[in-house]
Design a protein around this nucleic acid. Sequence first.
RNA 1: GGCGUGUUGGUCAAUCGGUUAAGACGCCUCCCUUUCACGGAGGAAUGACGGGUUCGAUUCCCGUACAUGCUACCA
Length: 512
Amino acid sequence: MTNKVRVRFAPSPTGGLHLGGVRTALFNYLFARAHGGDFVLRVEDTDQSRFVEGAEQYIMRCLEWCGLSPDESPEIGGPFAPYRQSERKDRYKEYALQLVADGHAYYAFDTPEDLERMRRDFKKDEHSVAQYDHNTRMHMRNSLSLPEAEVAQLLADGARYVIRIKMPANETIHLTDMIRGEVSFDSNLTDDKVLLKADGMPTYHLAVVVDDYQMQISHAFRGEEWLPSAPVHILLWQYLGWADKMPKWAHLPLILKPDGNGKLSKRDGERLGFPVFAMNWTDPKTGETAKGFKEMGFLPQAFVNLLAVLGWNDGTGKELFALNELVEKFSIERVHKGGAKFDFEKAKWYNHQYIQHTDNAALAELAKPYIKLNLDALGNNTELPELSYVAHVAGLIKDRCTLLPDFWAQGHFFFATPTTVDEAAVKEKWNEQKRLFFTAWLAELETIPVWDQVALEASFNEQLPNHGLKKGDVMLPLRIMLVGGKYGPGVFIIAEMIGREETIKRIKNMVG
RNA sequence: GGCGUGUUGGUCAAUCGGUUAAGACGCCUCCCUUUCACGGAGGAAUGACGGGUUCGAUUCCCGUACAUGCUACCA
């Protein structure tokens, strides 16, 4: 079963789950499903200083909301447990030591000050940066530069050390990327990355290789920011003797800021007024909450769809894909090489599309919390009507709703008497003649036998000639009375739905 | 600075050497609608630049420019 497709999403629990993270998870998920493989969630928590309480749970809830639940994870376990790197700590050191024994890595005893001095002393000009590599390592304190006896003594004394990879000289390291094709690197230009930190934890570089090997990962998808360190990982796979088991790589393009340039960040969302996290994230330290797509009123299906087509398309021009269609159509080879700027307007369009394609009963369920919230805020203890009524309303207003909160903004008058009325909209054309018309119609409404939109409109029309008015003269005033503003579905259906008592009340409010 | 990667309208993008260079979002105009939307019909708007290769380049190659990522005992 060594050929089985196994992929992993390996986030670091340092905060909210970013758009790009969800997209990486999505591509992993789609690939796994399409190939009958396993999708594993591995938590990369090797940096204890960046650990954030609750982040891991939060990431799992986000994946759940998106419908991208893993087959194996810290929470549900699996045959390759544990899935938290901090809990696999002991496994990494033996490989690091093996690399040292084989001459592919070495102990380094440098202090942070030593490193700082090296970077300063060896930089060639104002703009260059010196790194720990074949040029500088013999000037540092490590098991390559120090006498053997001194190294042994240092180790025996329990000196703090890290283990660094010894990058070979004059080698070209080749990588075949599923998205980018052949990519190559000069071994002289990449530094001797730390593999095992002084606290005994592995760095990403060691951990990702050991874990991908042990978890039998067949395909590794990650962000483009990892490409420069790929040669280190490839060398590790070779040095550890696992070259034939190395996963196929794919480096995903970045998601960029909508304006200007650069990688999309949490700050951009705040600045431009849209979320960058899947769900609300509250930083446990600062207490600050960053908005999530979920809470802003996105449907998870829409969110997943828009992420899928950010950097990928099926070549036909089709834009709307349900998750199962994505599983069927998605191919990693069609993923773009270049980064894409995130367009929130387009994101909203997707949500609008999904709202249109969701049936009214389901929409009613989705809109309910938002309606309830606003009703409660009004404080006049108005009960939320039964679901069938909400569903009816949803059907009437869904085409003007882009985000879930719009169901209140566009339909509040179905649930409560408008609190603000745009009187200015009718004021200058208002006159006694119109007032008399409404007073007369009001009398009709008291006794009209059938209360439905057809009967109401007929009665309204009949009244017109008696007052020398045209329908257009009084339609807008009626709308303002019932709705409060110049928007919403047909006025007579609104009257039908809110009922006789409420309709009469709202007209009286304005006619007196 | 070095290295890697990338570059089709404002944005997302199709094109696997030959097209009037699709489509979508957004924008504009008109129609529909006695409101607002939805919907419909139109419109403006694109191959960074310079060299090659070729009968023919958006497409292949090289260079330049620009962008972006990395250059941590972070991932």
